[in-house]
């Protein structure tokens, strides 16, 4: 099988794509946003609970999309749960760099992270939007 395809669809991606974790709505929640990829129609809704120490206590998503967008959202919720907002924002920056094909200068993510599995998206520029949809929803929710 082609290397590019194997890099893109690592086992963990296929697994999270088939069975996304933290799928549903967070109740109660105090932050939410919709993610949308107008190019293909994929969409998701992200909800989370931010406590008074600025820690993401719980985070969930629902929606429909391709394996990449579902896996990315699923892995994101796993990674961000229990993190302080400042850390989450650093992860956001690292992640967007990673999937755009540059893994130099990463501050908080490293090869041990499950999110690293999405690095293969860099070989498919048209799929970067799939991988970042949930993350942009997360940023949006912080702004609102």
């Amino acid at each position: 099988m082609n290397d590019l395809i194997n890099d893109l669809y690592q086992e963990i991606i296929l697994d999270h794509g088939r069975e996304p974790r933290n799928f549903g709505e967070c109740e109660p929640h105090n932050k939410s946003a919709d993610g949308h990829n107008p190019l293909c129609g994929d969409n998701l809704k992200l909800t989370f609970l931010l406590n008074d120490q600025n820690i993401i206590e719980d985070i969930k998503f629902t929606g429909e999309g391709c394996a990449i967008s579902l896996a990315s959202a699923s892995l994101m919720t796993e990674k961000l749960k229990g993190k302080k907002i400042e850390v989450a924002e650093e992860i956001f920056k690292d992640f967007t760099n990673l999937v755009s094909g540059s893994d130099e200068d990463l501050k908080v993510l490293n090869e041990e992270d499950s999110l690293y599995a999405l690095k293969g998206v860099g070989g498919f520029p048209m799929r970067v939007k799939c991988a970042t949809m949930a993350w942009h929803a997360f940023k949006q929710a912080l702004k609102d």
Partner: peptide, 28 residues
């Protein structure tokens, strides 16, 4: 299998097909 996966998979086989809503969201 989502159409994106189909399209990316075929792409590396050299086959260009379209995946998406084809600018017809009400129809989708």
């Amino acid at each position: 299998v989502h159409s994106h996966e189909v399209s990316s998979f075929l792409d590396v086989e050299g086959i260009a097909i379209r995946a998406g809503h084809h600018c017809c969201q009400p129809l989708m």
